[in-house]
Simulated scan of single mutants.
Amino acid sequence: MKYCFYLLVFTFLLMAGSCEKLGTAKVVYLAHTLPITHPVHQGMEVFAASVEEQSGGALTVKIFPDGQLGTEREVLELLQIGSIAMTKVSAAAMANFAPEYQVMGVPYLFRNKDHFFSVLEGPTGEAILEAGSEYLLKGLCFYDAGSRSFYTKKKPIRTPEDLKGLKIRVMSHQMSVDMVNEMGGSATPMAYSELYTALQQGVVDGAENNPPSFVTSGHYEVCKFYTLDEHSSIPDVLVMGTKYWDTLEAQEQEWLRAAAKVSATAQKQFWEDNVAECMAKLKAENVEIIRPEKSLFANKTQAVLEEFSKDPRMRKLVEEIQAQ
């Protein structure tokens, strides 16, 4: 099946290339898995508009949303071989290629939103973005993907003890598994596409995600308790394959860098606006919003931080973030 997928994509790209020439304009292909209504996609639209404006139309970006060219991992692999120029993926997906991205998933590492963005937009964030270049994946900027919190079907989560005996769906991400288990729940990795049915049928008792994902997935129709413990903040990443990046002229690279910064600033506002809309929607749908004492949850996850910090390189990165 995967061979067939790559054959189809390869055929498409063989005709189009990772970029194309339209008249005198060079067109860069950017593929991702989100719907066009998502605030991160809206950020990428700003990126495309900024590239075209700065270059005077000499360089443009064509976006392929909704997973048209594959899953996050599949598209990253296409970037590595130079078949597609750009993508947007979760930092959790990048962690499978560049280990520095794993630090984004450490629970309660960031003190608040201001600390989070000061790290991502400063030297530490720049170093993490550049770390992927060793694996042919150059990060250009981070996009806000909010904070992940628990939502459940049968009972509210007010303290970590309330997670005991509950099966909680998590990403196929070891740190997420360890975090839920340390809190007392039973972490259950599962494909996101299977989650709605699993919640309906009681295969799992809950899950964890940010407000826009909770709403757009329709999971609020099944789960009427949403606990804003905000245990992790895993951003999205705008990525370009180094094989394509290295073919660009210095001016073209600068246009892309500058446009990425413009889009990251705009996307933060798109995200905030969307979260506000989603929280209003949840209230209207009679979802109980719980704001727990976060320190209770943070205290339960110290073992996850300690295990992660056994790697000297990761420990140095954690200490660098904590010191900011």
Rank of each mutant, 00 (worst) to 15 (best):
N210I: 15
L317A: 04
G43A: 02
K88G: 10
V75R: 03
K2M: 03
R73E: 09
R169S: 13
G17P: 06
S263V: 04
V204F: 05
S263H: 06
L296A: 11
M175K: 05
Y6M: 05
T197S: 12
D205Y: 10
F117D: 00
K153N: 13
K283A: 15
V180M: 12
G122I: 05
I321G: 00
F110W: 02
M190F: 02
Q322E: 10
I63G: 00
T24W: 04
T11Y: 11
T159W: 04
F64M: 02
S217F: 11
H32L: 08
Q102M: 11
D66C: 08
S309L: 08
K268N: 09
F64S: 02
G202H: 08
E249R: 15
V106R: 06
D246I: 06
P211M: 10
G23K: 04
L137M: 07
A298I: 00
V46W: 01
S118N: 09
R111W: 01
E134S: 15
Q54M: 08
S263I: 06
A207R: 11
Y29P: 00
F308A: 07
E254Q: 09
M15N: 10
S18M: 06
Y244M: 15
T11N: 10
L248N: 14
L13T: 03
L163G: 13
D236F: 10
V119I: 14
T159A: 09
D144N: 13
I84Y: 01
K261V: 04
F270C: 09
S193V: 07
E161G: 14
L129M: 09
S186C: 09
D162F: 12
K155E: 15
S309A: 15
Q80M: 08
F214L: 15
L282A: 08
D178F: 07
A145Q: 12
K88Y: 15
Q68I: 11
I168L: 14
E293T: 13
I321M: 00
R111Q: 06
R313I: 13
E221W: 04
I81R: 11
Y196H: 07
V318K: 01
K243Q: 12
V177S: 03
L129Y: 09
R111D: 01
T188G: 04
S90P: 10
L256K: 00
K2H: 04
Y192W: 08
V46Q: 03
S55H: 01
L238H: 00
N112C: 02
E252N: 09
E53F: 01
C4H: 14
A48E: 00
F10E: 11
L14F: 06
W245V: 07
A276S: 10
P189S: 06
S233D: 06
E130K: 15
A266I: 02
V119C: 02
L137A: 05
T188N: 07
H38W: 06
F47N: 00
D273W: 04
G218E: 11
C19A: 07
A258S: 10
F214R: 14
Q54I: 04
A92H: 07
G122E: 02
E194S: 08
R73L: 07
V275F: 12
F150C: 05
P99Q: 05
I289W: 10
